[in-house]
Nucleic acid binder design. Sequence first.
DNA 1: TTTCAATGGTTACAAATGAAACCAATCTGG
DNA 2: CCAGATTGGTTTCATTTGTAACCATTGAAA
Lengths: 149, 149
Amino acid sequence: MEPEILELESFLPYRLYRLADAVSREFSRVYKDRHGLTRPEWRTLAGLGQHGTMTATELGEQSAMHKTKVSRAVAELERRRWLSRTPDEKDRRVERLALTKAGVAAYREMVPLAKAFERELLAKLSAGERAAITNGLAAIETSLVSSKD
Amino acid sequence: MEPEILELESFLPYRLYRLADAVSREFSRVYKDRHGLTRPEWRTLAGLGQHGTMTATELGEQSAMHKTKVSRAVAELERRRWLSRTPDEKDRRVERLALTKAGVAAYREMVPLAKAFERELLAKLSAGERAAITNGLAAIETSLVSSKD
DNA sequence: TTTCAATGGTTACAAATGAAACCAATCTGG
DNA sequence: CCAGATTGGTTTCATTTGTAACCATTGAAA
């Protein structure tokens, strides 16, 4: 019997990771070069920009970040005065987070850059390939979620 | 004009990264739980298992790892006696890396687990979805490579 | 109520990572 | 042949990350 060999280049977990890493690294220039943000900070900004007000826990759920990442990102954005905390009336453990004017301004500046980045990435693909990506990723996403029981 | 909002959940770089992270984290149990390997170590093992003998530089290229990661992974596998180095005859800067018997044994043990993992992941998808993933990822891969000029 | 578990969030510590400096060894142009 | 540039690989240092412990507050049960 022939020895079993794994072809790394076509192994799905590897391919996915490698591609995500490359894309993410490339995209990070948008927020890193311009404002020196880390990825958790960018995601925090994006989450709050999108939703207005959130708690740290909600942020973690929405953007798939560990709570320590959220905690540190929030602290840093607060230090920059891009974000403010308001203690929750009902539950004093909770803080309601929101962007300040400066934070919103930064967000508004970055959104078009992010969209342009995505557009350029997809522009190189045919309509069929674009659909394939969208559907394929969605398929794995749901398959993962449903297996977490 | 309405304020531009970015929907993080459907933003391609984010979706890709999040999915890759989830899949990779799940897969890491295969090599982490069983043998306490890190991802760089697993990739090194996989590369050498697949190709027999490689240099550190080749390993880095094949498995998309920074050379410091390769260096450390190789050192650790050597410490475990899963890997041996042989100085290259022609060029004394180069070391030819290969798995020892123990290394090959570990590799042979893990390959079926890796394949089973991938199979289960894909089993939840329709044939069309599987094709979509494969083609879609390939499309972005090549689009990225070709833009690196 | 009092106590114990659960929850929101931060912090301390250890491990993983990347950038840059580094050490050979090899190659290249004079 | 020699000086500088390049290459293979390692190490150092600062930053990022995850785990676990932690503090405070709330909820649930007795």
